[in-house]
């Protein structure tokens, strides 16, 4: 069964088209991440799925049922918000139970689920506190707990980690991944952080300007991007783009090489000098200015020393060269 099917979704605010004919299917139990730069429409798409925003045109199906005109509470979804959105006047218990109470579910069921969810998220000690008495990470867990309580057909996450500090973000990321494994639920997750996308997703949906650029498993997208945007968006430091014609590829406009695929080589075709070195401990990023005046980033594993302005020659394997035409489409 499919958890979600979007057909031809479009959305405009006045004259501004923020989503253009989006088609997408999410399978049962799948973890799908929407990723893209800010303003690409990923959050709007999530809100259309949730029913918080009406699509201007198109069809939303959740669990095989057309929910295009169904209010959010009846769609069988749960959502975790960026700002947590906990009800400030309710306790943790009240926050988590409100949705089920509103749906008039029996007390025993609510109690049972509350117990399970708070155990799963280690929230038992905090059930009678109010949101203002919790730390950021705890609030985030309550927000997730509130979603679990609903036992939804589809979980929606709207940049849930962006308000947490770096250490907590990593922990929570692992927790969400574990949650997905334990619940085996279908999840859609919106983020602009490619690390979250790469580490969490079964499939990634890369969006730009209201259009889906490419859909696929993380490593597929990384190893086999359809276009220059996807190639440049995934990977850090991002892919180097240089003029293809000047470097021996007459059939294409742009040559892309990932920083880690560049090698120092006395016979390499790319000649230039070092302009800056970033030492990160486990690896070293070297910024190189080519004689053609183009900039490249080279990523070396381990620790290296370079003199600034020292000449350097770089090479790469043919299989690691990505070629794109002038419209950014991949040339194979």
């Amino acid at each position: 069964m499919t958890a979600l099917r979007l057909k031809n979704i479009s959305k405009s605010f006045g004259p501004v088209e923020v989503l253009k004919n989006i088609d997408l299917t999410v399978e049962d139990g799948e973890f799908v991440v929407f990723v893209g730069p800010s303003g690409c429409g990923k959050s709007t798409l999530l809100r259309v799925i949730a029913g918080l925003e009406d699509a201007s045109a198109g069809l939303v199906e959740i669990g095989g049922v057309d929910v295009t005109l169904t209010p959010p509470a009846k769609r069988g979804i749960a959502m975790v918000f960026q700002t947590y959105a906990l009800y400030p006047h309710l306790t943790v218990r009240g926050n988590m139970a409100l949705g089920l109470k509103q749906a008039r579910r029996p007390k025993e069921i609510i109690e049972k689920r509350l117990k399970e969810a708070s155990r799963m998220l280690s929230l038992e000690p905090y059930l009678d506190r109010r949101p203002s008495e919790l730390s950021g990470g705890q609030r985030q867990r309550v927000a997730i707990g509130r979603a679990i309580m609903r036992e939804p057909k589809l979980f929606l996450f709207d940049e849930p980690l962006s308000n947490l500090d770096a250490a907590l973000r990593m922990n929570t990321r692992v927790e969400i991944a574990a949650l997905h494994r334990n619940l085996a639920a279908s999840m859609i997750y919106v983020t602009h952080d490619q690390t979250e996308a790469m580490t969490l997703a079964d499939r990634i949906v890369v969006m730009r300007d209201g259009i889906v650029e490419q859909v696929g498993a993380p490593m597929d997208l990384y190893n086999n991007p359809d276009n220059q945007f996807v190639a440049g968006f995934l990977g850090a430091p991002s892919m180097n783009f240089i003029n293809a014609g000047q470097h021996g590829f007459e059939q294409a406009a742009v040559l892309g090489i990932r920083p880690e695929h560049l090698k120092i080589s006395d016979t390499g075709p790319l000649q230039g000098h070092v302009t800056h070195v970033e030492r990160l401990g486990a690896d070293t990023n070297v910024l190189v200015k080519l004689n053609t005046d183009e900039m490249l980033t080279l990523r070396l594993f381990g620790q290296y020393d370079f003199e600034i302005d020292a000449p350097i020659r770089l090479g790469y394997a043919m299989k690691d060269a990505f070629l794109f035409d002038e419209n950014g489409h991949r040339v194979k």
């Binding site: 209010p71 509470a73 918000f81 959105a85 009800y87 949705g99 709207d158």
Partner: peptide
């Protein structure tokens, strides 16, 4: 917060 109101909508308010 919009998120809060939306959370309420999803909870069926």
């Amino acid at each position: 917060s919009d998120d809060l109101k939306n959370a309420g909508r999803i909870d069926g308010l």
